[in-house]
């Protein structure tokens, strides 16, 4: 079943979160590769980061917004043409069993 790499990754759990199906071969290959990559990422453990502010944006800008004005941009037809499956004017998926929200 699920197994953790040296760096603590439970690849099945993460692939589950990311909704990516992995073949056994892929899973085996990724396991080793990700282990190596995570090891390299732990390089950041060398840094003393106490009191350093995290950077989330490349530029320090704030309060960017738009005024509340409605504008119709009807892309319904184009959107429905792109949909893999549709039902009249809605997008169709297999029946949803509600486990979320």
């Amino acid at each position: 079943m699920s197994e953790r790499t040296a760096n603590g990754m439970d690849i099945d759990y993460v692939a589950q979160l990311a909704r990516i199906g992995l073949t056994p071969a892929e899973r085996a290959k990724f396991q080793g590769q990700l282990e190596a990559i995570l090891g390299a990422m732990r390089k950041l453990d060398e840094l003393e980061l106490e009191g350093i502010e995290p950077t989330a944006h490349a530029m320090p800008v704030h309060n960017v917004w738009r005024e509340d004005r409605a504008r119709e941009w009807d892309v319904k037809d184009a959107a429905l043409r792109n949909a893999p499956a549709r039902m009249q004017d809605s997008i169709q998926v297999p029946k949803i069993v509600d486990t979320s929200g």
Binding site: V14, M41, T55
Partner: peptide, 24 residues
């Protein structure tokens, strides 16, 4: 998978937050 992992519960601080600070 890597990106999902570094944000997942229990690993955010060790990876993502540290990286944001290293970015600074």
């Amino acid at each position: 998978i890597l990106g999902t992992y570094v944000l997942s519960s229990g690993y955010y601080d060790a990876y993502y937050l540290r990286a944001q600070k290293a970015r600074t």
